[in-house]
Nucleic acid binder design. Structure first.
Length: 393
RNA sequence: GGGCGGUUCGUAUAGCGGCAAUUACUCCAGACUGUAAAUCUGGCGGCCAUCGGCCUUCGGGGGUUCGAGUCCCUCACCGCCCA
């Protein structure tokens, strides 16, 4: 069976309906992957995830490496068994931490805070925030860890440059990322047969900032090495987060270089309108902390077909205006919280610090996102994708 | 009856002659994009406002002082100890 099958192409855009066939089952695309960084999608169980329609989740190499350690998870029989999720798992390489852990330091006003990471040719030196010990994550090590975890899709370690960045910075960053990609592939071929998941696939990561010639160069180099699919990286952070037009432009000029028969994952994105516009440009899968993290912070996504064309709205449940609002969070929603509780109660749970509030909010937002993806898939299937897309313009 | 301590922004506190006045919590609002994030940031006497300005505040009343939440007198209330 092909790893990736395209079932239908949209007539008016590059959107496509497909299936990724992993060692732990199929994933209907376009798909959204809830994030379970440390082997847990915060506040929800595997059964709940599946119930609301999640097919593949994302876990993080760096965090699981630090705690509890990939050796322990391997001993447990791999991450699927360890966390009790038998569906597909996508593992990020630790590349994002190369970016984010450094970023926190430069943003910090405290000068005495120790540096948490340093990038070298060999890999990334991390100062573990848990115990202060020094660890080096190389592209080989990242693959080894992901092999020990036994995820269905592994990703090569990449250097993530934040935008805006100079041409020089982008070029040297890409050069490093491509060298790492080659080393990662070699390591992957060497160890995969003896992994807990011999059916594991490997994705390369397209970098190159906002420059077309670099993105093209990145794709060509990755194609030469040979990967099962691609992640497009560096588009959920820095200046891009403030101006998504940069992201659409990069996707638009990058996608034509990619093979049609391989899945394309947009790393770290995003809001619903960003997801659907990226689908129109040819992207297949997405992951983002927004539905889960924002839920914990009291932000609920609700369907709203108002005059200005937005298909949804974000409701801040902590706001006083909901104190005596006894209506459901979203009366078009069928999640547990919307069927059994109201806004005033959910606000009370948040105000009181009751864990149930976080659980209900997380389930609601995940259902919102997963339902949104289902709508997208159906619209491609029934040839109404353009109309759905228009709601988010 | 005697001695001592206290009364400051919703609550709890700091303040020992220059203060619209500390800190914590609460409260109000904002942020969050391959999760160092159930986190972080801001506001929290009033009225204008660009820097800033003006007004009214620290149990009540009176006094000393250029200036009092801070010192003195007095009253009220609360607490502890001795009878």
């Amino acid at each position: 069976m092909d790893f990736f099958q395209i079932l239908k192409n949209d007539i008016n855009s590059k959107a496509r309906l497909g299936i990724i066939n992993t060692a732990h089952g199929p994933v209907k695309t376009p798909a959204f992957l809830p994030i379970g960084t440390r082997g847990s999608v915060k506040a929800v169980t595997s059964e709940e995830l599946r119930f609301w329609g999640a097919e593949m989740i994302l876990a993080n190499t760096y965090h699981l490496w630090m705690r509890p350690g990939d050796a322990l998870i391997n001993k447990a029989g791999g991450l699927h068994k360890f966390m009790g999720w038998d569906g597909p798992i996508f593992t990020d390489s630790g590349g994002y931490q190369v970016y984010s852990l450094g970023e926190k330091i430069t943003e910090s006003t405290s000068e005495r805070k120790p540096t948490l990471k340093k990038i070298t040719e060999k890999g990334v030196e991390f100062r573990n925030e848990l115990d202060g010990a020094l660890h080096v994550l190389s592209p080989e090590e990242s693959i080894q860890i992901q092999s020990n975890l036994g995820s269905d899709i592994a990703v090569v370690l990449d250097d993530v440059p934040g935008l805006p960045a100079t041409k020089t910075r982008l070029e040297s960053s890409l050069e490093l990322t491509l060298k790492w990609a080659e080393r990662a592939k070699k390591q992957f071929e060497k160890i995969t047969p003896e992994s807990v998941n011999p059916g594991q696939k490997l994705f390369g990561v397209v970098q190159g900032g906002d420059r077309e010639y670099l993105r093209k160069k990145s794709v060509r180099a990755l194609q030469k090495i040979g990967f099962d699919g691609y992640g497009i990286g560096g588009l959920a952070i820095g200046a891009v987060a403030d101006d998504p037009e940069i992201m659409y432009r990069v996707i638009d000029f990058t996608v034509p270089y990619l093979e049609d028969d391989k899945p394309r994952h947009l790393l770290g994105v995003g809001y619903p309108e960003q997801i659907i516009k990226s689908i129109a440009l040819g992207m297949d899968t997405f992951d983002c902390v927004i539905p889960t993290r924002n839920a914990r912070h009291g932000e609920l996504f609700i369907n709203q077909k108002n005059g200005n064309g937005a298909g949804y709205a974000a409701l801040k449940i902590l706001n006083k205006q909901y104190a005596e609002d006894f209506t459901p969070i979203d009366n078009t929603c069928s999640c547990y919280g919307c069927r059994h509780h109201n806004r005033a109660y959910l606000r009370h749970l948040f105000m009181s610090g009751e864990p149930l509030g976080i659980r209900l909010a997380t389930m609601h937002n995940l259902r919102f996102y997963l339902d949104f993806m289902e709508k997208v898939r159906r619209s491609i299937e029934f040839e109404s994708f353009s109309e759905l897309l228009a709601l988010y313009q």
